[in-house]
């Protein structure tokens, strides 16, 4: 089973041959065992480029982990001071947006903690924060990103001074040229497709990294979101971590009255995603789920961040 977990895309026969050679077990016995595992739902077959690939199912992964004696609470202690950051940076964000009369303040505020969590987590896990790859599908939350980048020393005071002016890399919606932003955005529902392309490229080059996609719950209305969800799972893009800023509001009202998103977790599951949910919008709660998500291999992961208590106005 472990061979199945670690292999990135073997065909069934090649895996069985490998096991047969390594442990000196007849191939026919293994084939019989595999049919039992398949009947129990512990392994699954996926097609890629016409060849059948076999891998552990979600249930299989969970059982293997329990057998390995993995603790049911795999996340260690997260420093509490990360939660204080949201207070400081909310004020900074408010200050930044005063220049443009609080344009998109509310939707930036609900996204702020997600970005704090990503950068704080990368810094404390010794991942280069300057090389963070962010796709802000929810482009109008860009001011939250600038605030976080400034705090982590990625954007300078001088760059912030020129914010929102012509030719500035700090626009109300992200543009290429701003650090950590991999693609311009602003038109909703497109970010995950772009992230998929990047993630496929990372897989091709066998590079290990994560692509962080931040999506609003309103933009789930777009059909392209669901096209791209299916692409991520078909291609087994486990290097994507998608955050859904579940603030419950979109421009003209409550999300459920405009176009239903629920049952969101079930929908994502049905599209082949591993889904995590946070009980609240605290950065520490989000980091807890990021750590869990990073460990999952074989399929894409989404974290639904409950930011309802942070949203004030409709945006």
């Amino acid at each position: 089973m472990k061979t199945l977990l670690t292999a990135s895309g073997p065909s069934l026969n090649s895996v069985l041959r490998k096991i047969s050679e390594t442990y000196n077990i007849p191939l026919s016995t293994l084939k019989f065992h595999i049919s039992i595992l398949s009947d129990l739902g512990l392994i699954e077959k996926i097609g890629r480029n016409g060849t059948k690939i076999v891998r552990l199912s979600k249930l299989g992964v969970k059982i293997l982990r329990l057998m390995d004696g993995e603790s049911l609470n795999p996340v260690g202690n997260i420093p509490r001071d990360v939660d204080n950051l949201q207070i400081t940076l909310s004020k900074e964000l408010d200050k930044l947006l005063r220049k443009i009369d609080g344009f998109h303040l509310s939707s930036s505020l609900t996204t702020l903690n997600i970005l704090i969590a990503i950068f704080f987590h990368r810094q404390s896990s010794h991942m280069d924060i300057h090389k963070t790859k962010i796709v802000l599908s929810k482009g109008h939350a860009a001011p939250a990103l600038y605030t976080v980048l400034k705090h982590f020393g990625i954007l300078s005071e001088r760059e912030m001074k020129n914010a929102f002016e012509q030719e500035s890399i700090i626009q109300t919606h992200p543009i290429k040229g701003c650090p950590t932003i991999v693609s311009s955005s602003g038109s909703l529902g497109q970010g995950l497709s772009i992230a998929n392309g990047l993630a496929i490229r990372l897989k091709m080059e066998r590079e290990e990294d994560f692509i962080y996609v931040i999506m609003g719950d309103g933009e789930l209305d777009e059909g392209q979101v669901w096209e791209s969800m299916a692409t991520s799972s078909t291609h087994g893009l486990d290097n994507i971590i998608l955050f859904i800023d579940r603030n419950g509001k979109q421009l003209t009202g409550e999300t459920e009255s405009i176009k239903k998103k629920e049952p969101l977790k079930d929908r994502l599951n049905a599209f082949g995603w591993e889904v995590f949910e946070t009980p609240d919008a605290k950065p520490s709660s989000i980091i807890r789920e990021i750590i869990k998500a990073e460990k999952i291999r074989g399929w894409p992961k989404a974290i639904i961040v409950n930011t309802r208590n942070l949203s004030q106005n409709y945006y």
């Binding site: 970010g191 497709s193 998929n196 392209q224």
Partner: peptide, 22 residues
């Protein structure tokens, strides 16, 4: 790279690959 019958997704995926110098 097969993305299925989804042109909008295909355009975004192409963009991501180009960003990665493909």
């Amino acid at each position: 790279i097969q993305v299925g019958i989804s042109e909008q997704d295909a355009v975004g995926t192409a963009a991501g690959l180009a960003i990665g110098n493909k």
